[in-house]
């Protein structure tokens, strides 16, 4: 059975008439890495808030349909219990610092104190999460004294220690420089490797192409496409609907128009692009190289 199950979900914020999510149907299997893409205003953040229980429990408003995670329905739960199953991290690392703690170690323990985890287990979990996110050497630093990338890793670790079944990430790298982005994606990758279910909203297609098992394209609050990354990310529907595309896909698409790309499928990663151009541009194939 799918760990995340959305059926006909429609959601309206209070004081508004237009639903931000419409008829969303989505199932995510345990351990799956699902990426969500979409132009601005597509409802990506609202989808995250719905999965994480904040819509409607925090934002109020009107939710119809079924939101179910790990067999519990959102309507029948309260936020403080719901967050034990679904962890949420978002864009701005600074605003995710609780402010209630002076050191990174204490910051990570904040959530565990709130939900009453015994002290020994608390320390073990915090140390584990620091190791996984590569922030062990920051344990005694003030969370406010860190760089953006470090802060975002602290934010991720603060959610990780809670050991949620599903991790929802809303553009965690949108305010990072390339170095910070790489740091944060490193962490996301190792979380996914460890078997956690990850739902990631992201603009950076190159990274999605590398990690995602499945891509969902969201537009105007509805699911436009839902499928394999190589299919969704190369679909001609993306550019015509205002989505970004991977630069490898864009280059290959342009090459295809100029007759320089003879492969059937457009590439989504650097490797695929190199392989494709290699075979398209060299007259003779290199069978011996392939054989190896």
């Amino acid at each position: 059975m799918a760990i995340v199950n959305l059926q006909n979900v429609t959601y309206k914020y209070p004081l508004t008439d237009v639903p931000v999510l419409q008829n969303i149907n989505l199932q995510v299997e345990e351990g799956e890495f699902v990426a969500v893409i979409g132009p601005n205003g597509a409802g990506k953040s609202t989808l995250c808030y719905t999965l994480a229980g904040f819509a409607p429990h925090f934002f109020k408003g009107e939710l119809t349909g079924i939101v179910e995670v790990a067999g519990v329905e959102s309507h029948n739960s309260i936020l403080s219990e719901w967050v034990l199953n679904v962890g949420l991290a978002f864009q701005n690392p600074f605003n995710q610092i609780s402010g209630a703690k002076y050191t990174v170690f204490e910051e990570l323990a904040f959530g565990l104190e709130n939900i009453g985890i015994p002290r020994d287990e608390m320390i073990a979990r915090v140390e584990g999460a620091m190791k996984l996110t590569g922030i062990s050497d920051l344990a005694d630093r003030s969370p406010y004294s860190l760089s953006g990338g470090q802060q975002q890793r602290v934010a991720l670790a603060s959610i990780l220690v809670m050991q949620p079944r599903v991790l929802v990430l809303d553009e965690p790298t949108s305010q990072m420089d390339p170095i910070g982005t790489r740091e944060v994606f490193g962490v996301i990758h190792s979380m996914a490797e460890s078997g956690m279910t990850v739902i990631l909203v992201e603009h950076k297609m190159e990274w999605i192409a590398q990690f995602a098992d499945r891509v969902i394209a969201l537009k105007d609050g509805e699911i436009l496409m839902n499928g394999d990354p190589s299919e969704v990310l190369t679909s001609p529907l993306l550019p015509s609907n205002g989505f970004g595309t991977s630069r490898y896909t864009s280059v290959a698409r342009r090459a295809q128009e100029l007759g320089l790309w003879n492969e059937g499928k457009l590439p989504i990663t650097l490797d695929e692009a190199v392989r494709g151009f290699n075979s398209s541009l060299t007259k003779e194939e290199i069978p011996d190289a392939r054989a190896k």
Binding site: L79, E81, F94, Q96, G99, G111, N114, M122, A155, I159
Partner: peptide
């Protein structure tokens, strides 16, 4: 404006949990 995001961030970490609290500091 920062208030709303910070409220979400601490709610996501069980700020309103009704379970008995524990403490890191002894």
């Amino acid at each position: 404006v920062e208030v709303e995001e910070r409220a979400i961030a601490i709610e996501a970490r069980g700020f309103t949990s009704t379970r008995p609290k524990t403490f890191l500091r002894e």
